[in-house]
Structure formats: structure tokens, C-alpha cells
Nucleic acid binder design. Structure first.
Lengths: 208, 208
DNA sequence: GAGCTGCCATACGCCACCGTACGGGACGTC
DNA sequence: GACGTCCCGTACGGTGGCGTATGGCAGCTC
């Protein structure tokens, strides 16, 4: 979903308008929310700043304050998109029949996805923010329950399943943070694959 | 004016002067560094801000810029204290004879210490900062080597030992972050003890 | 007791960002 | 072709932080 011109009409041909707003004349609330979420992935919550975002969208604050009450409501809108994405992801996982394969794929995804694919870590960092905190908790709780339920299907009792899901979350978050801040410390190249396998083995078969 | 009497002399008896500067007349560079490190533990790197810190020390920026060139050099000084603390901690651990006991104690400490005891997670968050990044990497690398060496003493080959140390770091960091941002998701009360035991078991006996 | 030095207070300019006020262009509608 | 609505540009004031300039007081030194 690149910024594919949501409600556009003509844009006869090429003029790229030299700004980050290809041929559009007006921006929608969703454009702002999308851009905010993107900025958040790349630069954290601090990058969700009205003026810089306006600049990168090739417009001004005037546009922003037309669509939004204030910065917090932009953050809210961006995070609502994220919530939807998260739900979608879980729904997609649900469509994988074999629970073992399902678990393997999810775990592998968590540890190999491009850094910035998921913003849980970023949000955890800013969980004190009044908008971020509640949404983060809600999403994370749902994910944990999802993971726990999935693990129960593998035959574990409920409490062990929750512990397992929590451990997977912890590892995911920890690795994401280290990858962000000190990637030199993580195994590189071929060692990396071995390390991922090691983690998958550590978390993968919850036969405890 | 009106604040805590900077140039006071006697302070006849015990009154703690209600400001953060009990009976002292002048502040030292070390006072600033100490306060900065403390602020960092509690409020992250952002809390290491000259004017607020001055306020909380009962003084003004004038003092600060007498002792330091700029904010970065304060951060540097604070982190140097942290480096020393870290070395000290490892030296203390070295004094525990039995390697098994040593490992157990270290691991337990890592997962039960009061939140904010170690600022690794905080620093990881701000690892892009030119002063933070290098120091963090240096300290973390030394800790990983320390942990790996310790694990080797338990009989593991070098690569497995490093992986183990890295995993312990990852878990520590992950838990610290979740504890900071969404502690409701972690087991509370009595479940908590069971969870800690679970983690210790997961990491503890590296018999792989 | 004059001066020198160490330490601090205060005021200032600068920057980045937030939010508001208000004006004005573009476009559909009649 | 006037008008209203939608959307945006721009200027302004406010906040919080950084760094600088400069003045001044306290104690010591002689």
C-alpha cells in the first residue's frame, strides 16, 4: 500500500509536483494518519511532529489543524490504523490450519521481519503517553491471548501457555531494541541464521 | 532569590535546608554528574536537562555552565559513573567462587532488581545519541563477554556461551521495557515468583 | 583592605515545536 | 457569475529547552 492516491480523479499524466504530494491537491485525514504511522515506524513518537510532517507532505500546518484537533488526535488516528493492522495479521494467521506450522511461521516472522515492521517496541518506550499507553496495552493483551490460545492448542495448560507467549513477546521486544540500538552486538551474517534457529528452538517447541 | 540560600555559611544545626543542596555552599562537577545519572534512571535521557536539573539542585544554569561545556559533556560524565558502577559490579561477582552460584545470583539479580537499577534499557532507547551509543556498546560488550566467560566455566563451548549471554541480555532488556511500559501484562504477586523461576530455569542451566 | 579567583544569578538570543487566527483560493451549486 | 464550503497558507504568540554574556558576591591571600 504505497501512497496510492486514495480518492483521486484525474492526474492526467506525469507532473510530479516536486513535493511529496504527487498530483493531489488536497489531503485527507487518512493521508495524515498514514504518514504519521510511517514516521513513527522510522523515527519513533517524536517524529510524529506536526510541522515536520507537514513539510514532508508538502503542505503546512493549516492542513493539519483542519483535519485534526491536535497532535494527540493524530497519534490516536495513526495508532488506530496500527490496531487494525494487528487484527488483520492475527486473522491471517488464524487461516493457517496446522497449529504447529502457524506457530512456527508467527515466531519466525517476529524475529526476521524488517526492523520497524512492528512498532510495539517503540510504543513500549512511550507508554507513558496518555494516548499510547491504553492502545498499546489493549493490542498487546490481545496478542498475548492469541499467542497463548495458540500454544494451548499445542497441548499446554493455560498458565504455561501464557508464560510462553509472554516470553516470546519479551524476546521479540528485547531483540528489536538491541537491533535498533546496538546491532553490532547481535550475530551477523551466517551466525545470524544460527542464532535465529537457536531462538526458535528455545521458544518453538513448548514441550515443558 | 528566595530559593535555598546559595551562599550561606553556617546552617547552625540540623535543618536539611529543604532544597536538594543540604548544607553545601557550592556544587561540584560530581554533584551534577550524580544528579544527572539519577535523573536518567528515573526519567530517561530527556530528564537530563540543564534547567530542570538546576532547579532540582536548587541552583541555576550559571552553575552548570561553569562546570561543564555543554549538555553532552554532562551526559558523558554521568555515563562514566555508570561505567565505573558496572565494572564494580562485575568485580564483585568475580569474587563469588562457585561459578554456578555466581551465575544464579547474577541472573536472579537481573530479573528482580528494582526497575531503574540499571539503565541499559534506557540507553538502548537513546543509542543514536553520539555520546550514549559508544559507551553503551562498550559496556554491553564487556558484560556479554563476562557472561559468556562465566558460562564457559560451566562447560559450554564459546559460541553457545555467547548465545546464552546474549539471550540473557535480551530477556533482561525485554522485561525491563515491559515493566516500564506495561507492567500490567507481567505476572503479579505470587504468579510473579513463579514467572521468575520459570525464566531462571529457561536461562539458568545452559545444558544445551 | 585590595585584589584575585571560584562559583553562581540573571538576562538574553536562538531554535523547534505547538496551537490559534484569519485570510484567501478552488470548486461545486444555483 | 455570485456564493458558500472545503481546504490550505501564513503570521502570530506561547513554551521549553540550549548556550552565552556579563555582573556580582564570598573567601582567601598578601
Amino acid at each position: 500500500m504505497r501512497n496510492g492516491v486514495p480518492s483521486e480523479r484525474v492526474q492526467s499524466d506525469d507532473e510530479p509536483e516536486r513535493s511529496a504530494r504527487p498530483g493531489r491537491r488536497t489531503l485527507s485525514r487518512e493521508d495524515w494518519a498514514r504518514a504519521a504511522l510511517e514516521a513513527m515506524r522510522e523515527g519513533g513518537l517524536g517524529a510524529v511532529a506536526v510541522e515536520p510532517l507537514a513539510e514532508s507532505l508538502g503542505t503546512t500546518k493549516g492542513s493539519f489543524y483542519w483535519h485534526f484537533k491536535d497532535r494527540d488526535s493524530l497519534i490516536q488516528a495513526a495508532l488506530e490504523r496500527w490496531v487494525a493492522e494487528s487484527e488483520e495479521l492475527m486473522a491471517a494467521a488464524e487461516r493457517i490450519e496446522d497449529p504447529v506450522e502457524r506457530g512456527r511461521r508467527l515466531t519466525e516472522y517476529a524475529f526476521t521481519a524488517p526492523s520497524g515492521a512492528d512498532i510495539t517496541t517503540t510504543l513500549l518506550i512511550h507508554a507513558q503517553h496518555p494516548v499510547v499507553g491504553p492502545i498499546l496495552e489493549q493490542v498487546t493483551r490481545r496478542r498475548l491471548e492469541f499467542g497463548a490460545r495458540l500454544t494451548e492448542e499445542l497441548g499446554l495448560p493455560a498458565d504455561a501457555a501464557y508464560r510462553h507467549a509472554l516470553t516470546a513477546l519479551t524476546m521479540t521486544v528485547g531483540i528489536a531494541l538491541i537491533r535498533r540500538g546496538a546491532p553490532q552486538l547481535l550475530p551477523q551474517g551466517e551466525d545470524k541464521d544460527a542464532y535465529v534457529r537457536y531462538i526458535l528452538e528455545l521458544l518453538g517447541p513448548p514441550m515443558t
